[in-house]
Write a protein that binds this DNA or RNA. Structure first.
Lengths: 223, 223
DNA sequence: ACATGTGAAGTTATTCACAGCC
DNA sequence: GGCTGTGAATAACTTCACATGT
């Protein structure tokens, strides 16, 4: 059960938290962490793979695989030590100095996301929100100060923001994305019903709600 | 370039729109359709794979693969006929008689989704929204009538609703999911920050916004 | 020249299944 | 008995590369 070494593209050897973790696994690790923290019966001391699987809708084997790449190791009689697990997940996912994000478009969707992040994530904080509507700029919504989009470049640079969340109407999404990238953001989470393009150096995740809806409708019929 | 037949798990032969299409491809087909309909320069007559790829952030080869399974066939000089393409996508994704959905939780997120669907999708309609707050029940929000959750089972049955969208706080998500399933829904789209469980006969998609955010933050660092 | 259609290859993700341990 | 750790098998998804058609 030694810590497994992974071979990186370059040929170099990288261990544990240093290795690049596949997308889906990153998402699940984030989920495991939240599930454990939010457990209604208080955070347990230890957890079995099949319990985590049941809580997250996966399989026990998948959970074990995911945890394997972190180098966490469980006991056959007690499962995984939750404290250790959380520490290893944090080590893998979090930037030690923390990361800053901003959100553009303080409509219903933007407000919903701001409220999700109001209970401050220690290592990932939404530092600013931007809108064009003077009715919201200047206000503090869900604990986040809203400013005019005119100040976007300035604020992104000053606050060291590396992640941008786009919750504007579809026809403005690409323009906002371009400005965010120009200002130095390297990750984009786009909720507009239209994919955005960015240079290869920027990671883009499009959350297409309409497409998800149609996907669910499609598979809802095939069961 | 004959229409390819697909072999189903059972061993039977299934053609074109009858075959079960993989998840990611369903999502992209939905995206292609919306992109073509919403083209700012008006809907083109024909489109090349590389143009669709640029618009959706994929590759030309991937677009061709996706379209291949629909049995659409393009011309080497003009690309794909958009009318034909849309018709084939509809045939693959849409239930001919239409499908009905409902949404539970008319907060900021729920309202955002209702407004996305206000411009009525012909084949997938949100027929009802539910909430516990008497301030919203009885009102029409973004074209959708809001009712008390007490009437959920009744309305789901009466309106023939097969898809449920969950936009309630995390601690109520599982309870809502159970009630929807009990009432006969076979597809769930869950936005609560906690995965929901359902029987195998129900298709569940969890859209974990927090996990997506952490995923973007993670990959934003590694570029 | 340039685009499609598609085997073949490559990559990533999931599941199986079982040895070893408590 | 039930659980972890993991090689091996399988499945899902993407890219390559090129024959073919215009």
């Amino acid at each position: 059960m030694a810590v497994k070494a992974h071979i990186a593209e370059g040929g170099g050897i990288i261990r544990g938290a240093e290795a690049r973790i596949p997308e889906k696994i990153v998402a699940r690790l984030s989920m495991y962490r939240r599930i454990l923290r939010d457990d209604p019966e208080g955070m347990p001391d230890t957890v079995f793979s099949h319990r985590l699987a049941a809580l997250t809708g996966g399989t026990a084997a998948q959970v074990r695989r995911d945890l394997m790449i972190l180098g966490v190791t469980g006991s056959t009689s007690r499962g995984y030590d939750v404290r250790d697990l959380l520490q290893k997940i944090g080590q893998a996912l979090d930037e030690p100095g923390g990361q800053n994000a901003c959100l553009v478009g303080v409509g219903n969707l933007g407000r919903a996301i701001l409220s999700y992040f109001e209970t401050r994530h220690p290592r990932l904080t939404i530092r600013a929100a931007f809108d064009i509507d003077p009715a919201v700029t200047g206000r503090v919504i869900h604990g986040c100060r809203c400013r005019s989009v005119d100040t976007l470049e300035q604020v992104v640079r000053d606050e060291g923001i590396t992640v941008g969340v786009i919750t504007v109407p579809g026809d403005q999404a690409q323009g906002v994305a371009d400005r965010l990238v120009q200002a130095g953001v390297t990750g984009l989470l786009n909720f507009a019903p239209r994919p955005v393009r960015a240079p290869h150096s920027v990671y883009v995740e499009d959350m297409d709600i309409t497409a998800s809806m149609e996907k669910v409708a499609y598979f809802a019929r095939r069961r």
